[in-house]
Design a binder for these strands. Structure first.
Length: 109
DNA sequence: GTGTTGACCCCAA
DNA sequence: TTTGGGGCCAACA
């Protein structure tokens, strides 16, 4: 059963994020035609914990490339380690070379 | 049913 | 640099 809710659209795009790349909440919201609803993208990610969704929430960061949602993981380093495992350098909750690893769902999709 | 909060973003002073 | 305001809307008390 595939829903068409805003959340499901967010999850759909999040799954398309290539390994070793990241995107932002705002970019996803904008790609869905709801640029001002970027907040909802973040809220949706909280629900993304459900393993059935298979959403790589760790590849979604805020506009500054900062890991704002890391506190929602089991451990404060979980998100950072997942990104590092993807080949992304993360120092002090900040994605390094953010411009290079940034994946724009609008341009790339 | 109302009020507050929040993994955000943009703009102004 | 920090602070404040507006917008969006789901989840929660």
């Amino acid at each position: 059963m595939i829903g068409n809710s805003f959340y499901d659209q967010v999850y759909e795009i999040a799954r398309l994020i290539p390994k070793g790349r990241v995107t932002t909440y705002g970019a996803i919201a904008k790609a869905l035609g709801a640029a001002k609803s970027s907040r909802m993208v973040g809220t949706a990610m909280i629900h993304a914990h459900d393993p059935r969704l298979k959403v790589p929430a760790h590849r979604v960061v805020n506009r500054n490339g900062l890991l704002t949602g890391k506190h929602h993981y089991d451990t404060p380093t979980q998100m950072q380690e997942l990104l590092t495992a993807d080949g992304i350098q993360v120092i002090d909750d900040q994605v390094q070379d953010f411009e290079k690893v940034y994946w724009d769902p609008i341009t790339e999709l």
